[in-house]
Design a protein around this nucleic acid. Structure first.
Lengths: 123, 123
DNA sequence: TAGTCATTTAGCAAAATAGCTAACTAAAAA
DNA sequence: TTTTTAGTTAGCTATTTTGCTAAATGACTA
């Protein structure tokens, strides 16, 4: 793992903390699924993910056009425990868990299609 | 304790991480001792300490003109373990430990006097 | 091969943050 | 009571970071 300072910096952003929280419960998430959860521009999410990756908090796997992220291996056990313990109190994180159930019930393909539609129709 | 996001934000700065690291090993430190360790302006250190206090990572005690800081009670056990484990690798933190031995071997009074002299003579 | 699609990279504006000095507060000493 | 001292608060500038859109990349599809 990286230095605790770099890890703290990576976690010191609401959106990135939400992603890590989601990955503590869901093995693997595709970029488009994370975009759907955070409702941020894809480019913004992509940059957030690279910050997390530089801190060695997550790792990625490419499958065709899709990129999947998961928590990095190895992931510090005390860090994981601290996050699990303290994140369970957060409103936002709990809401994300619910939202993710819905998102994960579709294929990534469909999630992307929906995003595209939304983007087209928001002018 | 505060939310993990606020704690991460508080720890996402090199100087503040150094203070927390120091307090993991030294029960209590006076502001002037922290100034001596970080070599930053007193005002800057004071603001850092209030960030740490707002995140409930430290607490303060006033003794005459001196203010002493210590880790807040309660302090998350997993967080403490994670920090102890990962901070031990850091060059800077190890150097601080050595420096602190010297600083703590003087009374706070003497530390402050030295700082004043330094400030006067740096024009 | 040309086109589409998912993601990343580049470049920009707005907001947050860390450093400083100067002014203020509270306690002790002269 | 006046002055000194330790620390905090206020106000400023420089740097970093977040968000965005537009352009580039790499991989499937027609």
């Amino acid at each position: 793992m990286e230095t605790p300072l770099n890890i703290a910096k990576a976690l010191a952003d609401g959106s990135r903390m939400r992603v890590v929280a989601a990955l503590l419960r869901h093995d693997e998430l595709c970029v488009c699924q994370i975009v759907e959860m955070l409702r941020l521009a894809t480019a913004t999410v992509s940059r957030h993910m690279s910050v997390l990756q530089n801190a060695r908090l997550v790792q990625s796997r490419k499958d065709g056009r899709w990129v999947y992220y998961r928590l990095a291996e190895p992931f510090s056990q005390p860090l994981r425990i601290w996050l699990l313990e303290s994140l369970s109190d957060s409103q936002q994180i709990v809401a994300d868990q619910v939202l993710l159930e819905t998102i994960l019930s579709c294929q990534p393909e469909d999630v992307c299609r929906q995003q595209k539609k939304r983007k087209a129709g928001d002018g």
